[in-house]
Simulated scan of single mutants.
Amino acid sequence: MEIRGYTQSDEVSWIRCRTLSFLNTAYYDNVLNKKEIYKNSAIEIVAVEDGQIVGLLDIEYEQEENTICTKGKGLGGMIWHIAAHPDFQRKRIGTKLLEQAEQISKEKGLQYLEAWTRDDEWVNKWYIKNNFEKVYSYLQVFIEGNEEVQEVINVNVPNLKVVQAFAHYTGDDQSYIKSKFKRAHDCNCYIKKLV
């Protein structure tokens, strides 16, 4: 397996890898049809085996404090994507990508990495195992179905009917929100200090 920088010719394989790796997670519906182009500088690396992208990691990083990241001190890098193709999991691809990205991040003068993930237990354990610290959490709420939508959304536009919505809940009564909506995910922020 080779770890190298992402190139534009990797895009289709990158999208396939990301989509398949997210399929059996709480992010199953977060499907992309093209790879983002970041406004700021980014570390974009891939793991390749037999010409196929089997892992990926993207970090957009700051030149000025708190312009991308929000929970750490100093210059940070936001991990936007980290994934291993399901046919190649359990080969430490994510860890190898992270190790390479940390080395590059330190060379660029970053003090920490920030990552956000939903409530998949194995993903959260992976971050903790790799020395990230959970520093914040809120709920991502998917409001779906007539009952849920009608209870929380008032529409003042004639002939417009909302059928679903996405919301963030940052209050203290998370158990109430989880009991009220069928799909409410913890969204956890992790920080890893690099210095």
Results as ranks from 00 to 15, higher is better:
Phe142Cys: 10
Ala165Asn: 14
Cys17His: 06
Ser9His: 10
Lys35Met: 05
Gly72Lys: 08
Asn40Trp: 00
Ala165Glu: 10
Val141Lys: 04
Asp173Lys: 13
Asn156Thr: 15
Phe142Asp: 15
Val12Ser: 10
Gly77Leu: 09
Tyr176Cys: 08
Tyr61Cys: 05
Ala83Asn: 03
Asn24Gly: 10
Arg4Met: 06
Ile43Tyr: 06
Val46Phe: 11
Tyr176His: 12
Leu57Ser: 11
Leu113Lys: 01
Phe166Lys: 12
Glu148Pro: 06
Val48Asn: 05
Tyr112Thr: 09
Tyr112Ala: 09
Glu11Leu: 00
Trp14Cys: 02
Pro158Phe: 00
Asp50Gly: 03
Leu97Ser: 13
Tyr27Met: 11
Leu194Phe: 07
Glu151Tyr: 01
Lys71Ile: 04
Asp29Leu: 03
Asp119Cys: 00
Arg90Ala: 14
Tyr136Phe: 14
Thr19Ala: 10
Thr70Ala: 12
Val48Thr: 14
Thr170Met: 06
Ile93His: 10
Ala47Phe: 02
Ile177Val: 15
Gln140Tyr: 13
Ser9Trp: 05
Trp14Pro: 07
Leu194Pro: 09
Glu144Tyr: 01
Asp50Ile: 00
Lys161Gly: 02
Tyr176Arg: 12
Asp87Glu: 15
Gln103Ile: 00
Ala184Val: 04
Trp126Ile: 02
Glu99Gly: 00
Tyr6Pro: 01
Ile128Phe: 02
Lys71Thr: 06
Gly145Ile: 04
Phe166Ile: 08
Ser179Cys: 01
Gly5Val: 03
Glu114Asn: 02
Asn130Cys: 03
Glu144Phe: 00
Val195Phe: 09
Arg16Cys: 05
Ile37Glu: 14
Ala167Thr: 11
Tyr6Glu: 05
Cys189Trp: 06
Tyr61Lys: 08
Ser41Thr: 09
Asn131Asp: 15
Thr70Ser: 15
Lys182Arg: 11
Gly109Trp: 01
Glu114Val: 02
Thr117Glu: 03
Val157Ala: 11
Asp29Glu: 13
Met1Gly: 14
Glu107Lys: 02
Phe181Lys: 04
Gln89Asp: 09
Leu23Ser: 14
Cys189Leu: 04
Lys73Val: 15
Trp122Ser: 09
Leu32Lys: 03
Val54Trp: 09
Tyr138Gln: 14
Asp120Lys: 00
Ile153Asp: 11
Tyr176Lys: 12
Lys129Phe: 02
Glu107Asn: 10
Tyr6Trp: 04
Tyr169Phe: 14
Thr117Ser: 03
Arg18Cys: 09
Leu160Ser: 07
Leu194Tyr: 05
Thr25Arg: 03
Ser179His: 05
Asp87Ile: 01
Arg118Tyr: 11
Ile104Phe: 04
Tyr190Pro: 01
Ile79Val: 15
Thr7Cys: 06
